[in-house]
Design a protein around this nucleic acid. Sequence first.
DNA 1: ACAAATATTTAGTTTTGTCTAAATATTAAT
DNA 2: ATTAATATTTAGACAAAACTAAATATTTGT
Lengths: 218, 218
Amino acid sequence: MTLSEEDYIKAIYHLGKGENKTVSTNAVAEQMETKPSSVTDMVKKLSEKGLVNYIPYKGVSLTEYGQKTALSIVRKHRLWEVFLVEKLDFSWDEVHEVAEQLEHIKSEKLIDSLDRHLGFPQVDPHGDPIPSKKGEFKKAVKKLLNEVPIGSSGICVGVKDSSPPFLKFLDKHKIALGDKITVMDKEEFDGSLHIRVKEADIHISNLIATNLYLKITE
Amino acid sequence: MTLSEEDYIKAIYHLGKGENKTVSTNAVAEQMETKPSSVTDMVKKLSEKGLVNYIPYKGVSLTEYGQKTALSIVRKHRLWEVFLVEKLDFSWDEVHEVAEQLEHIKSEKLIDSLDRHLGFPQVDPHGDPIPSKKGEFKKAVKKLLNEVPIGSSGICVGVKDSSPPFLKFLDKHKIALGDKITVMDKEEFDGSLHIRVKEADIHISNLIATNLYLKITE
DNA sequence: ACAAATATTTAGTTTTGTCTAAATATTAAT
DNA sequence: ATTAATATTTAGACAAAACTAAATATTTGT
């Protein structure tokens, strides 16, 4: 597999939302920042190699083999992201570009060793699940903090209200994007929550909880 | 810089023994496992980009800019080798192929962080020095163990006598290629040595010392 | 110094991945 | 159902990096 082929496989995988939907060549072209005609060419080649199903004018989807390949690339990408954040102190938003390069390194031993070195992480710094060597993984969903069941934890991935007062509140309570948050308990009376943010336990109102998005794996 | 260009720069650097000698296109072709005509093409391109000095029929050498580039690649290669051995438990002889890929990853922050993560190592697992960010580094020399001054240490990189009895001896005393060896003391009387091999102190005869190569940086 | 051997370059192709412009198929609108 | 708009493919070209075969320089042996 060439670098370019891998990028196409990954693009088709992501556009299909991991559910192997058929996607249009135009969509792939936009995702890859290239021209539709280039996509047609590449998709024909990938089809000959047995990585995708391609019907002219109808779109492409991954074959089983293509899916396995995509998951292997996603696995590498996410493991490297964990490495960059955990070991090299990269921040949440700096990892993507470098991981895009590292994901193409070819060495099974490297990835297995990296996985072990990192303690077999289940999710990457964005809260997305890391496929196992065999390609198994749990799906991740984005939920408002108030909808997260007690005992579950996830990664803070966004805000609904992005007004300065709210962001200031988050800053004051040391809640940042990328932080791991666990719902410890919920008050029946007012819907307020006891949560754990990176080792610290704090208590927040229901209103706050309805404005924070977590990514959780079920 | 493309991947291929980087490989050529590195080949020219290594053939010049780090001393920026002028090397022939044929030599580069052999090193790169490619054809001389391909080298001519690439060398012309590199010359236009200001990375090499090229005189047709006379050979190529790196410009100052080319040397800086080469050292930056060597630095990356060797840091990754340290990472693979120290953190991922790769053995001495497994690292090269993977490091050849990793050395092409482009991110200054990545390399600086890796360097820090590894504790700013001075040499790679083969005993070769790691250039600093600015491209400074000490030269490494290969010496027989009996010629190494007291107090110095180096990496075991080879044997002069490769007969089974000698190799068996090394195995028995847990001396392996890639091990760090420090000369602790020398007996005037018989030239025997007290050496430290990976935390263990042992005593070896002069004959043994004349058959082991160390790579040391001055 | 000259012929033979060797080294190097040039010219012309190939492959991969891309592009533009033109042609064709599909979808949407009336 | 026909036309207009949009999506997709085809055809032809290009750049990068490689190759082969032929041409040209350089070096070597006598």
